[in-house]
Amino acid sequence: MTRTRRTVAAVAVITALAAGGAGAARQPWRSQGAGEGGELRNETSSTTTVRKTTLSSGLELTGKVSHGPTTEIVGQGRGTFTKLPRPGDRISAGSMLYELDAEPVVMFTGSRPFWRDITTGVNGPDVQQLERNLTDLGYADATNLTVDEEFTDNTAAAVKRWQKALGLKQTGKVELGRIIVLRDRVVRVEEITAKVGGTAVVGSDSTVLKVAKPDLFATVQLADDQIAQLMPGRRVTVRFDLGGESKGKVKEIARGSGGDDAGGGDGGGGSGSEVGKDQATATISLTDQKKAEAAVDQALPTVTVTVPDEKAEDALVVPVTALFARPEGGYCVQVARSGRQKPALVWVRIGLVVGGRAQVSPVSGRLRAGDEVVIPS
């Protein structure tokens, strides 16, 4: 097995252990079938020694504060850009994102963009999305509009009330391009691509502007063997270079961020892997948004993320690559016994996982410090 393949497999095992997903951690290069006597089928392999030691998860990572990933807004209407927002502006559902021909293009919330004019005779999920927004914004209520997939006279009346409030001609019809649908109720403008006086062309797929969530997040890049310590939901402490700190919680881990802007590990079991396009990045929500905003405003976005220390003393420790997930659930290791041709199968319970090493306790069978466990070649 190549070094790259072993690394990828180890990451899969670490991630599955942290998430509690036994089945997902099966080592793909080995058969999961059992041989005679409950032993796994033997293949070309090496062994490593089970050690009794103290396993500690203390970890500090350097990262930065930002507004997180951006969403590109693509215009669907046609005309001349007569007004655009400024970077840093916050825009909420029902408000204007920008102007075309001196008329507002408005932000609504939902799961899909509008793809056609919405008017009498039209039915579908886009109608329901429109009616839900009109109700949420106060242009209709349960007494005069049923939120469903049917465009009725009551829908048209609600649209006219909305058009009147915007200063538009009250047609009762929503033309394509009048509304931009986003998932968030409030967004922050990050970048403007269009120019006042420029022309919007239908079907050009040109980006008008980029927006992000208004909240600030801390992001840190992770070595592969650090992922298990920063799984979503993990609580951490974020210390600002500006001074002060905030409580944080890991929101998500994603790959493909690339670059080194998010920082990297400063120890705590890092593998020293190179920063690259496929490196994992953890996004951390922050409870103290004021301190985060101060850090960004003063151009001091660097932070130190501290993972609470967990410690297992006098623990039996093996590499995660020595663990096998059984189809029926649970984990085991293969122990090479003196005088036996085949390794013995020992069921284990997994404890703390740090830096590619796992704390194990035998559930069925004997496992001691000094034993040799099998690792695939």
Rank of each mutant, 00 (worst) to 15 (best):
M1E: 07
G21T: 12
S57L: 13
S57W: 07
E72C: 05
T80V: 15
T80C: 02
L84N: 08
P85D: 04
G94M: 00
Y98G: 08
E99F: 11
G110H: 03
R112Q: 12
R112W: 13
W115Y: 08
R116W: 03
T120D: 12
Q129H: 08
E131P: 00
R132Q: 10
D136R: 13
D136V: 05
G138D: 02
A140C: 02
D148E: 01
E149F: 06
R161T: 08
R161C: 04
Q163L: 10
K164F: 12
A165C: 05
K169P: 10
R188A: 15
E191I: 06
E191S: 14
G203P: 00
V211E: 07
L222W: 03
L222T: 00
A223Y: 01
D225M: 10
I227G: 09
I227L: 15
R235N: 15
R239T: 14
D241R: 12
E245P: 06
K247R: 11
G248H: 01
K251L: 11
I253W: 01
G258D: 03
A262T: 12
G263W: 06
D266Q: 11
G270R: 09
G270A: 15
Q279P: 06
T281V: 13
I284Y: 04
A292R: 09
A295S: 12
A295K: 00
D297H: 13
Q298L: 15
L300P: 01
T304P: 04
E313R: 08
V320Q: 05
P327T: 05
P327I: 04
G329M: 04
C332E: 09
G339S: 09
G339F: 10
P343E: 02
V346R: 00
I350S: 07
V354W: 06
A358N: 01
S361F: 12
L367Y: 02
A369S: 11
E372Y: 07
